[in-house]
Computed example of a mutant assay.
Amino acid sequence: MSSEFPFAQVIGDPIKQSKSPVIHGFWLEKLGLTAEYGKAHVQPQGLADYLSRSRVDANWRGCNVTMPHKQAIIPLLDSLDPLAQRIGAVNTVVRQEDGSLRGFNTDVAGFLEPLTDTLAKKHLFRMARILGTGGAARAIITGLSDNGMVIVLAGRNQEKAQSMIDELAPQGDHHIAPLDHFAQPTDFEFDDREGCCDIIVNASPLGMRGQPPLAFDFSHAPPGSIAYDIVMDPLETDFLRNAKDAGFRTIDGYSMLIGQASAAFELFFGAAPPREHDEELRERLMA
Rank of each mutant, 00 (worst) to 15 (best):
E279Y: 02
G32C: 06
L257I: 10
N242V: 00
I176G: 06
E36G: 02
Q184M: 11
Q184S: 12
P14K: 04
G38K: 06
I140C: 06
R138C: 04
Y254H: 14
L235V: 15
R55T: 10
A271Q: 15
H41F: 10
T92F: 01
C196W: 14
L47M: 09
D98Q: 01
E97V: 14
R102N: 07
F188V: 11
D217R: 09
A48G: 12
N64A: 10
F104W: 13
T250A: 02
E167A: 15
I200S: 08
G259W: 02
Q184C: 05
G99V: 10
F248I: 08
G110E: 04
D198R: 09
R209W: 00
S52D: 12
E280G: 05
M149V: 03
M149F: 15
F218H: 05
A137D: 10
N147E: 13
D57W: 03
G148S: 10
M208R: 12
E36F: 09
S225C: 10
A271W: 01
K160Y: 00
F248M: 13
G270T: 02
Q211K: 15
G247R: 07
P6G: 00
H175E: 14
P234Q: 11
G148F: 09
L168A: 07
A120W: 07
H41D: 07
P185F: 08
A161T: 01
L281Q: 06
A261T: 01
P114R: 03
L115M: 13
V93W: 03
A8M: 04
H123D: 04
P44H: 10
L285D: 12
Y254T: 13
E29Q: 15
E279W: 01
G148V: 01
G207A: 03
T142M: 12
G103A: 05
I151W: 02
I141A: 07
V65M: 08
R284H: 06
V231D: 07
G253K: 07
A139E: 12
Q184Y: 02
A48Q: 13
L124T: 07
N157C: 03
L240R: 06
Y50S: 09
P82F: 12
P212G: 10
L51R: 00
H174L: 11
L33V: 12
L76K: 08
A263H: 15
I251H: 02
A221P: 09
L112Q: 04
G46L: 05
S52I: 03
S18F: 02
Q171Y: 05
T118C: 06
D13S: 15
T92L: 04
F268Y: 13
